[in-house]
Design a protein around this nucleic acid. Structure first.
Lengths: 219, 219
DNA sequence: GCCTTGACCGACCGGTCGGTCGGACTTTAG
DNA sequence: CTAAAGTCCGACCGACCGGTCGGTCAAGGC
């Protein structure tokens, strides 16, 4: 009767940056990277645990299922977007400036979490019903807030009604969702520059005046 | 020794619309529908052949692999886009009008092939290297043509340089790629209306004048 | 010293997957 | 008529999948 090998700590070499992370965090980081590279379904839980340098049991000790792992990744991203939006909406300025800040935050957050954003836009439909509902609700509220902002500014005459408010929202979020596909951190433009160009494009269409933001210390 | 059942024509009830389609076309249609509903990886070749009302062997008689099926779906879509673009570019008008027509064709094509567009934007990265390269090249040429059009119009002064040309392209194609996610054929707007609103938004930002296209029969 | 607890290990399981293949039917050519 | 080519059938295969589970072990309370 062969005596089984004594189990012990694994000694796989995990990326140096992951050394200080907890087991749970290493699992999430591995999963995120692999989901972004290969897609959710094409990634096996074995690949995840090997990359994280843990055993399969560790994964299922921290998460109920592979789906839960996808939810964790999605939740982190959406929470970050939601927090940013609420912070900006908290100290409200004129609509044009608010819109600029909203776009800037969205672009910076998305660019900074490009893998998560890529995974989310590609795989969110693979979430289980309950998790999907939670994430979609948050997502929807972001969309609606954005649309309402444009709508009310068009009503008050601050913006021209070149198009319906939904089209503006779809345009902005279409851009945002596609960003992780082409954005490179070592590309020629910083996220802030990208955001400002997008704002300029949108506001040029929406502002009745030549489209320039009024000077900072306007009387 | 049990005598095996004699193989014969299947008598599954395929959707009436698919009756006149060839076996090959039925397979592609089934695959497309299932990929759009469930995703590429989550769809098994068994599901595809059952829905198409054929046996597995028929699928592998017409296609080398499941990947090939995804390629076929992608290729059809990209070819359609490419053809539309070339037709519009063939009888060249002023840039603004060309851009409008390009956007209109893109929106109409995408809305009309919403399942294929959805599958393509979600799963194109799962294509094998060779097929992926082919499709990406076609895609790239569409992007580049669009960008060049904007760039040259900005150079000549026909368009204002509110943003760099790439941002305009990313904005338009971000919108296009996201369209199959929210577009409903029974929604309040027709594809043409959607296209015209998008054109209006983009051109309002790009045109030096108030942003209105000059009246049709202008003196 | 002993017992509980939470973290983690890894062999193992039932089931499904993409893909194969020998053969049988149908159509076309001669 | 026969032969060859083209089309399609479906049982079968080995690999691999997500998930389970009996266990090990270090730390802390008593």
């Amino acid at each position: 009767m062969p005596r089984p090998e004594l189990p012990g700590r694994l000694s796989t070499d995990v990326a140096a940056a992951d050394r200080q992370l907890s087991t749970r965090e290493r699992i999430v980081a591995s999963a995120l990277a692999l989901f972004a590279e290969q897609g959710f379904d094409a990634t096996s839980v074995n690949q995840i645990v090997v990359r994280a340098g843990v055993a399969k049991g560790a994964l299922y000790h921290h998460f109920a299922s592979k789906d839960d792992l996808l939810y964790e990744v999605s939740r982190e991203l959406v929470d970050r977007q939601l927090d940013g939006m609420n912070a900006i909406l908290a100290d409200r300025q004129d609509t044009a400036r608010t819109l600029r800040e909203l776009i800037r935050d969205l672009v910076v957050t998305t660019a900074g979490s490009a893998p998560a954003a890529k995974v989310f836009s590609r795989e969110s439909h693979r979430l289980g019903d309950a998790n999907q509902a939670r994430v979609r609700a948050a997502r929807r509220s972001i969309h609606d807030t954005f649309t309402d902002l444009v709508r009310s500014a068009q009503h008050s005459g601050e913006f021209r009604a070149v198009t319906s408010p939904d089209m503006v929202t779809f345009t902005v979020f279409g851009f945002i969702n596609e960003l992780p596909v082409w954005y490179r951190a070592d590309g020629p433009k910083t996220p802030v520059q990208i955001a400002d160009e997008l704002s300029e494009l949108i506001l040029s269409a929406l502002m009745p005046a030549p489209g320039q933001l009024p000077a900072e210390g306007q009387p």
